[in-house]
Design a protein around this nucleic acid. Structure first.
Lengths: 248, 248
DNA sequence: TGGCATTATTAACTTAAGTTAAAGCCGTTT
DNA sequence: AAACGGCTTTAACTTAAGTTAATAATGCCA
């Protein structure tokens, strides 16, 4: 693990408005900052942690993309979620058990590190945080449910359209992108392992979506060419400004 | 909604050890009980709430089985989870938005009702509760992830074996059942909508599992005949005593 | 700047799962 | 006990997606 030389103070952190510390009073932010042990940078395709490890840290993703996935006995892989800046990683119900999934960077990433044992202390001393975690976990839950529907009850074109729109929306709340174009660091195999298809069928379906003029995808740049048709196809009905209220 | 005449006091509630109030000190239990507005009973196949409703309550399931599902534009349905006694229902990231899934009883059910607006008060006045919610949501999250893998990366026999073992395990932590047999109130169509298959294919696959002597399923009773083979088939590796530690 | 590895693309063929349709079973009601 | 509706079961046929395999781009590193 390569460590950064520049530590960004939580009180001026640009990511804070996206993450679990959203809307916390500034004196609390300062208190929380004391729990952060370090800020680390990883290159693309590196592991933050692997399924089965006894892992002692939790993380806030500061910059970059991370994919979270589970590995099966037969060697195949199911991607659970793409984490974007502000996401909270490696939190699970049983903090003492080995971690039940892997986290691998898609781009160069920067993380803020909070030891797991501090989480309990933070919750005790700053109960607002527990409430924030409950909120953020419920939000992740909702996303997970949407993908259950996506994989369980839609065909290839619909699944792919949904994936593209989901990422487009999640990213657009963070940054304004030009020309409906967003970075897209995943490979077609990653797409396949996200929406429950094979690499070859993803490629076929992609061609189909391209020929219909719905999207453009090349050189890790995705352009949404026909939002309305895509959204209808995908059954995508997310409000335009999808910022849910925190609990407290 | 039919209301019960018997209100069970939270302090002596047999379900409490399974739910969000687990391990809370007794004075806190008494405080929480004041938030409970009522205890309701619903018959089988009734709706507790429907997707799209502005819903004002949250619930703790006291007895019975409930299925939670999402409905698509095209009319199909994806079951997200089967709720068992102790489960906390209708909690979502944005408590002010319409509810994003439906809850329908599979058996007669009894619920404890907590108004949504009280949730915020409860969290403020009893921060341990927020922590419990974070824990229970993280546990549900883990289940949701397991089903993502199940639907996304396994074939019909494997998916079905997994569903059976999951329910068997979750129920077994609550009650001791005779002869590896548990109640199974769902129809084959429900199974299909849980694991992303069609009714007809579920029936075919069921016959296959029966002929191999792995399970028995009739009259809403499921018997696990060959646990080891089923677990290997399903890639099911849940610890025998799956009680995770609460956060606080 | 050339070679290597990863990723993307396409075709031909196979198969697991979907579709349609019909008949049988079971529990409930009258 | 007959009649009804909701489940279950099965067969025949179709299709969307998986498999295998080969080739073509792309990007990275020496």
């Amino acid at each position: 693990m390569r460590k950064t030389t520049t530590l960004v103070s939580c009180s001026v952190c640009p990511v804070r408005q996206l993450n679990i510390f959203k809307q916390l009073p500034s004196e609390l932010i300062d208190a929380i900052e004391t729990y952060r042990t370090e800020q680390v940078t990883l290159p693309a395709k590196a592991f933050l942690y692997k399924q089965g490890e006894e892992h002692t840290n939790t993380y806030t993703l500061f910059s970059g993309w991370v994919m979270l996935y589970k590995t099966l006995n037969n060697g195949s892989r199911q991607i659970l979620r793409y984490a974007l800046p502000g996401d909270f990683l490696s939190f699970q119900a049983d903090l003492n058990s080995p971690i039940n999934h892997s986290a691998q960077t898609l781009t160069e990433c920067n993380f803020c590190v909070f030891p797991r044992q501090s989480i309990l202390q933070m919750f005790e001393q700053h109960p607002e945080l527990a409430s924030q975690i409950a909120w953020i976990t419920a939000r992740d839950m909702s996303l997970s449910h949407e993908y259950l529907v996506n994989i369980g009850r839609k065909n290839a074109k619909e699944r792919m359209a949904y994936l593209f729109l989901d990422l487009y929306h999640r990213l657009s709340t963070q940054v304004e992108y030009q020309d409906n174009t967003i970075p897209f660091p995943m490979t077609q195999e990653d797409i396949a392992d996200t929406i429950g298809l094979t690499l070859v069928h993803v490629n076929r379906t992609l061609r189909c979506l391209r020929e219909e003029g719905l999207i453009k995808l090349a050189h890790h740049q995705l352009t949404i060419l026909d939002y309305t048709t895509l959204a209808t196809l995908a059954g995508f009905t997310r409000p335009l400004d999808p910022q849910p209220q925190p609990l407290l």
